Computed example of a mutant assay.
Amino acid sequence: MIEQPFLAAGLGAIIGAVLALTGAGGGILAVPLLVFGLGLSMVEAAPVGLLAVGMAAAVGALLGLRQGVVRYRAAAFVALIGVAAAPVGLMLAHQLPDGPLALTFAVVLVYACARMLLKASRELRGQPPLGQRSLMPCVLNPAQGRLRWTLPCARALAFTGLLSGLLSGLLGVGGGFVIIPALSRYTNLPMKSIVATSLAVIALVSTGSVISASIGGVMHWAVGAPFAGGAVVGLLAARQLASRLAGPRLQQLFATVGICAALLLVMKTLGS
């Protein structure tokens, strides 16, 4: 039988590879892997998943910073709101029974995977992957190359941080499936900058959630450390293959796997 730390590292490597190949939203599969692969409860799996996704996202964000595509002011603002909201989500997670929490996660997982399927189908048809941009309160100042900070812009980014922080604490998800569509809708940033900025937000919000979980004594470091280490290794390894493997067809495959995982989670929850 494979010892738990080695199994955790292997499962973490899968999540890192998914993140590299599918984008920031792929980390939502971390919790189902921990539940089915290591037998953790939802409350136990959430902070472990966040630790792995946060570390992998931090690597991606640092690479984005080196390329100059991270909008670090916007990322810091969204993350500040998210870090403040995450403990509220964590508190709710500990008040809810495991069954309703798992069903809530399954609904969010199906939503995230449905968005991934829609994005992939648009790419295959040659359309903008996240649809037409109609409402953009945050636009770049062409003279300065920075976002124009207006009240509608701050309000839109604050709501994005609030929702991603609550989901981070409640369900252990990084929130990329929330942040990327929001930045695409509210800003005129290029997609490469949107993804890199989203990774920076995920890294910062996840750090806050992991600290809260550690203080609350609910972080399983014996599982979390190898799982997170495996995620970073998987991310770095898969980045070398991303240009050849990543694409809408692969996103459709991972989205289908995610929907199947959500259905299995529902069946497991209702059957117990």
Rank of each mutant, 00 (worst) to 15 (best):
E3P: 01
Q4N: 01
L7Y: 03
A9E: 08
L11A: 03
I14A: 14
I14E: 07
G16I: 13
A17L: 10
L21R: 03
T22N: 04
T22D: 01
G23Q: 01
A24R: 02
A24E: 00
L29M: 14
V31Q: 03
V31T: 14
L38Q: 03
L40N: 06
M42F: 13
V43F: 14
A45R: 12
A46Q: 15
P47W: 09
G49N: 11
L51I: 03
G54W: 05
V59T: 10
A61Y: 01
L63Q: 12
L63A: 06
G64W: 05
L65W: 12
G68L: 13
V69K: 08
V69I: 14
V70N: 09
A75R: 11
G82T: 05
A85G: 02
G89Y: 02
L90G: 12
L90C: 00
P100L: 05
A102M: 13
L103E: 09
V107N: 10
Y111F: 15
M116W: 06
M116T: 12
S121N: 09
R122T: 08
L124S: 09
R125I: 02
G126C: 07
R133M: 01
M136K: 12
C138L: 07
P142I: 01
Q144T: 15
G145M: 03
R146G: 00
R146H: 10
A154F: 07
L157E: 04
A158L: 04
S164Y: 00
G165M: 01
L170Y: 07
L171S: 07
V173S: 11
G174C: 08
G174R: 09
G176M: 07
F177G: 10
I180C: 01
P181D: 05
S184M: 00
R185N: 04
N188P: 02
P190H: 03
K192G: 03
I194R: 01
T197F: 10
S198C: 04
L199R: 06
L199W: 02
A200P: 07
V205P: 03
S206R: 00
S212P: 03
S214G: 15
G217F: 13
W221P: 10
G224M: 07
G224K: 08
P226F: 08
G230S: 08
V232C: 04
A237R: 02
R239A: 06
Q240D: 00
Q240S: 04
Q240V: 04
L241C: 09
S243H: 15
R244H: 14
L245A: 11
G247C: 08
G258H: 11
G258C: 10
I259W: 14
L265T: 14
G271Q: 13
G271N: 11
S272K: 04
